[in-house]
């Protein structure tokens, strides 16, 4: 696949993925995975799990990875740039619009509602992350088997640290990683 085609393809993915990077998985599967295509399902599965286990936005990680496989360095650059290219205009324009009409009564009531929705989604994110870090799951089906004591402990520590001390979030995150590397193999 030529580099330009890769760029255009990922632009398309950037426009189509509503609700963030996880939407990329079905889009990429349709385009790149299967007999006679770039990736086998197993390889694609490995690639996704590495992208999720590596720091950074999952969508960017995945795009860089797939881009590298289809066209080495320039491929990964084209894929990543393509993925964020539409964002630069869409999110940028949306913000510009908000700034320009900030004082208009209709815009005020729009933002009033949007903020309520956003607050609800932040609480939703907390619940989703708890599910990923505090509950234990087993196997492919992902059925819940119990609560991870160390996950719960780390979550509570980080919450208390950020709430009641002046410590920087960077240190909280690094400390959580260190605690995880020690506690999770021991306690589960």
């Amino acid at each position: 696949m030529t580099i330009l085609l890769l760029f255009v393809n990922f632009c398309k993915f950037g426009l189509l993925c509503f609700g963030g990077g996880y939407m990329l998985i079905p889009l990429l599967t349709a385009e790149f995975v299967g007999p006679g295509k770039l990736l086998t399902p197993e390889r694609f599965g490995n690639l996704i799990s590495i992208s999720q286990l590596t720091p950074g936005p999952v969508g960017i990680n995945t795009a860089t990875f797939v881009g590298y496989i289809s066209g080495n360095f320039w491929g990964s650059l084209a894929a990543t740039a393509g993925l964020v290219f539409p964002t630069l205009f869409l999110a940028g324009l949306a913000m510009k619009f908000i700034i320009r009409y900030r004082e208009h009564p209709l815009m005020k009531s729009i933002l009033y509602g949007a903020r309520l929705g956003a607050a609800a989604l932040v609480v939703y994110a907390v619940l989703i992350f708890m599910q990923l870090s505090v509950l234990k799951r087993s196997g492919e089906s992902g059925t819940f088997t119990g609560v991870s004591c160390s996950g719960l402990l780390i979550m509570v520590i980080s919450f208390l640290l950020v709430k009641f001390s002046k410590i920087q979030t960077t240190w909280v995150i690094l400390l959580s990683g260190l605690l995880g590397a020690i506690l999770i193999p021991l306690l589960g």
Binding site: F129, G151, F159, V172, G180, I184
Partner: peptide, 12 residues
């Protein structure tokens, strides 16, 4: 373990 720990910390 380290990454599971980071995820738990970020939850907090």
């Amino acid at each position: 373990g380290a990454f599971a720990g980071i995820r738990a910390g970020v939850t907090g």
